[in-house]
Design a protein around this nucleic acid. Structure first.
Lengths: 195, 195
DNA sequence: CAGAATGTCTAGCGTTGCTAGCATGAGGGC
DNA sequence: GCCCTCATGCTAGCAACGCTAGACATTCTG
C-alpha cells in the first residue's frame, strides 16, 4: 500500500468524523428535524452522495452520533460516581439527568430516534455497556438483583428525561424527583425495604 | 338550520371519526411511519385535501388519535384500580404496561410523537388528567407528596414501556420489574422508607 | 332562476432520503 | 511520455412526503 493511499485513508477517516460532528452540531443547534442530508452535505462542503459513501443512510449517521454520545455519557457517569463514592446513586442519577437536559439532541439520538445499535446483547458496543455498568456499580456487590435495580433506575431516569423534555411533566421539580428516586431505590443498609 | 345541513353536520362528524380510526388502525398494523396523508386519504376513500378540512395537519390527526387513547387508558386504569383496591398501585401499573405493550402505536401517539396536547396545565384535556389522577389515587390521601409519587411512578413505567418497545431493555423481565417498582414506591404503612 | 356559498377534486409546489450515471484526475504498465 | 484503468465526487433526477391553490360541481338563498 503506497503512501498516497495511506494519506487518502487518513483523509477519509477525517471526513467521516467531520460528518458526525457536523450532524451533531446541527442537531444540537436546530434539532434533528433540521438535519437533512442536503443541509449536512452543504455543511461539510461536499455533495450529498459522499454521505452515502461513508454511511448506509441517515439512520447510520444518527447511530454514529449516538455512539459518540454513549462514550461521553459513560465518562461523565463514571466521573460523578467516583467523585462521590458514598452517594454513588445520587451522583450518577444527577449526572445522567444533567446530560439529558444539557444535550437534548444527543440524548434523543441515543435513546429516542431509531438506530441500528444493539442493546443488551452480545454485540452491544462497549460504550453502551459501560453506561449501564455505571448504574449497576451504584449498588452493593452482594446485591444479587443489582442488574434489575439498574434497569429500573435507568428506566425512571429515562422517563423523567423524555417526559420533561417534551413538556409532559413540569421540569421545575427535577431535584425533588431525583431525591425521591434515590431514596426509594438506594440499597444501602439504612433502606430496609430495598432488598 | 335546515334538516339538510343537520344531516351534513352528522356526516361530517362521522367522517371525522372515520379518519381518526383509520389513522389508528393503519398505525397499529404498519406503524406510524406508514401513516401518510395519501394512504390515509385512500383508506377513507376521499382525496387528500379533505383531511385538511377536518384537521390542521398531520400532527392534529395524531393528537386526535392520542386523545382517544387517553380516554381508553383512563378507563382501563380505573377499572384495574377498582378491581383490586388494596393493591391499587400494582394493578394500575400492570394495566399501564399492558396497555403500552398491546397498543404500541397508540401509546406512541400519546407519549412519544409530537402532539399539540397540553400536559400539566390548566387547559389539559380531561382524559389526560384522569390518567394522571389514577396514579395519584394509588397513594394514601394523607400522603402530602402523592403528586410527586405519581409523577415518578409514571416516569418509571413510561421509561420501561418505551425502552422495551425499542428493544433497549429486554422485555422478558417485565413482571420482575413491576414487582420491584411497586415494592419500592408503595406508600402503605408496611413500607417505612416511602414516606 | 341567477348568484352566492359550500364541498370536493385534480394538479402541483417545495422538500425529503436516496441513487444512477457521468465526469475528472491519479496510478501503474509499456 | 502515453494510454488504459479505476476510484472518487459530482450533477441530475426519482419516488414519496406534507400541504395548498384553483377549478369544478353541487346546494342553498334571495
Amino acid at each position: 500500500m503506497s503512501a498516497i493511499s495511506e494519506r487518502r485513508e487518513r483523509e477519509r477517516a477525517h471526513r467521516h468524523q467531520l460528518i458526525i460532528t457536523a450532524a451533531r452540531e446541527l442537531a444540537e443547534t436546530e434539532g434533528w428535524e433540521a438535519v437533512t442530508t442536503r443541509r449536512l452535505a452543504e455543511r461539510v462542503e461536499y455533495s450529498q452522495p459522499v454521505l452515502y459513501s461513508h454511511f448506509n443512510g441517515k439512520d447510520a449517521i444518527v447511530s454514529a452520533v449516538a455512539l459518540d454520545g454513549f462514550g461521553e455519557l459513560a465518562t461523565q457517569l463514571r466521573r460523578a460516581r467516583q467523585a462521590a463514592p458514598e452517594q454513588a446513586l445520587r451522583a450518577v442519577a444527577g449526572a445522567y439527568l444533567a446530560f439529558a437536559t444539557e444535550r437534548p439532541a444527543l440524548y434523543q439520538a441515543m435513546f429516542v430516534l431509531p438506530t441500528d445499535l444493539k442493546f443488551a446483547s452480545t454485540e452491544t458496543p462497549a460504550p453502551l455497556r459501560s453506561c449501564f455498568d455505571e448504574f449497576v456499580s451504584c449498588f452493593r456487590p452482594d446485591n444479587e438483583r443489582r442488574g434489575l435495580f439498574a434497569e429500573v433506575v435507568w428506566s425512571t431516569l429515562h422517563g423523567i428525561a423524555v417526559l420533561s423534555d417534551s413538556g409532559r411533566i413540569p421540569s421545575e421539580w427535577r431535584e425533588e424527583r431525583l431525591d425521591f428516586l434515590v431514596a426509594q431505590f438506594s440499597d444501602d443498609p439504612r433502606n430496609p425495604s430495598a432488598r
